[in-house]
Design a protein around this nucleic acid. Structure first.
Lengths: 226, 226
DNA sequence: CCCTTGTGTGAACGCAGGATGAAACGGAGG
DNA sequence: CCTCCGTTTCATCCTGCGTTCACACAAGGG
């Protein structure tokens, strides 16, 4: 995901913290010139402008962002309660605003709704390990940029293993955690699914799933290296 | 100025008071039927839906308002902090939201900004995906420049799927989001509608809707391709 | 070296979940 | 009241895939 543009530089610590916790990358800038210089190749994902410290600079930056050939959006404004009445005259400079001090979850909800409105969609939930990527929303998996056609149980098994890399699971544990607690069937079922997963991962990545003899299976490298 | 639609009936006293002080006329309604009965000749100016008391009724009213021939907008949602995480999947049901308890001036600022925004018609009236086009204003659909004759439920289902391309939905989710929360019927109903959609899309585009076995259905491809 | 134990391999079975066809239901309009 | 059309439900068929087995192979221990 492209980073968000933040103003001022440095941004308020609680803002930076909220974005970091939410997993949103960001860069802070001091003015429009600075913004152009550090702009990533793919452009900004949006902007969060903090207007309660330096309103003048904030609004002038908003104006500059909007005057670009491709206006930067969405723009989320952080304002204090005392500034609410000033917003009316600047409706065109921002897409949404949030009262400071804000609750991190309100900020995230506003970001998500803004991204939805502006058509950028929300970030998909992903599990990544090396070249392997699992998209939890679309139930799709890919390895080395090549999509894997996994069945339901294969996907669930791989998802469970990949979300605990390095950890060894016995067949019984896998059966109870992936198949369900009340499951009662042969433990060799796990073997077969592991086999099919390895086959679909391809020879090159089959070693992502390792056998730990007389114990079970492990995804990825152990912490001590192999 | 036309009145605002308020929910529930009676509305929270602090909401009514804030609007009265701001000089905004309003009428409160108990449901969509009620809303149609007391609707003024010139229509509503917008809606403020309080969702922290009765979320079910609130969201179902939102949906009804959006499904009108001329969707009611703007819709401002009042939510409690605990509901923030629920908003993500209902992005299409409202235009802005405000945390309760709210400051009267924040509410007014949001209203003003909403009126400004909607006055310029920023709401997307088209959904496009590949050769498929949905015109939300005329309730018409076309695929490969050929018009599709869809029934109401078919259109609603396709609209919902196409506005979340790539994402997988279970039948239960589809029933609750497209048919409505209070819907209680067999899940196979979804299958039949999917079948008809695929048939009307034609053999060439039937694969726009994919079956994810033992999970549900997905519209379109993910960004990795198939 | 054999024996035991544990895992990889190939193939077959059987069932659940989805597709399909058709009939019943219900509301709107004439 | 009847008819039409959209929706829902039911019954049936079919396929994918999860499960199981039998066997071959590898590892480790005495």
């Amino acid at each position: 995901m492209e980073p968000l543009l933040l103003y001022p530089d440095p941004p308020p610590p609680e803002l930076a913290q909220a974005l970091d916790l939410g997993g949103y990358p960001w860069k802070s800038v001091a003015d429009e010139l600075n913004a152009q210089r550090v702009e990533p190749d793919d452009g900004w994902a949006g902007a969060i402008i903090c207007a309660d410290i330096d309103p003048e600079g904030a609004f002038s930056l908003c104006r500059a962002l909007r005057k670009r050939d491709i206006p930067l959006e969405p723009v989320l404004l952080l304002v204090s309660g005392a500034q609410l009445s000033d917003l009316e005259l600047r409706d065109d400079l921002f897409d949404d605003f949030c009262l400071a001090p804000f609750h991190p979850r309100e900020l995230e909800a506003r970001l998500k709704h803004l991204f939805w409105r502006t058509g950028r969609g929300t970030r998909p939930e992903l599990i990544e390990y090396g070249e392997l990527v699992l998209n939890l929303e679309t139930y799709q998996a890919a390895c080395a940029a090549k999509p894997l056609d996994l069945t339901y149980m294969e996907y669930e098994l791989l998802k469970f293993l990949a979300s605990h890399p390095g950890k060894v699971f016995t067949r019984e544990t896998l059966l109870s955690r992936v198949w369900g607690y009340e499951y009662y069937g042969g433990a060799r079922t796990v073997d077969v699914h592991i086999r099919r997963l390895r086959a679909k991962l391809g020879e090159e990545h089959a070693n992502l799933i390792q056998t730990v003899r007389s114990v079970g299976y492990r995804f990825g490298q152990s912490r001590w290296g192999v």
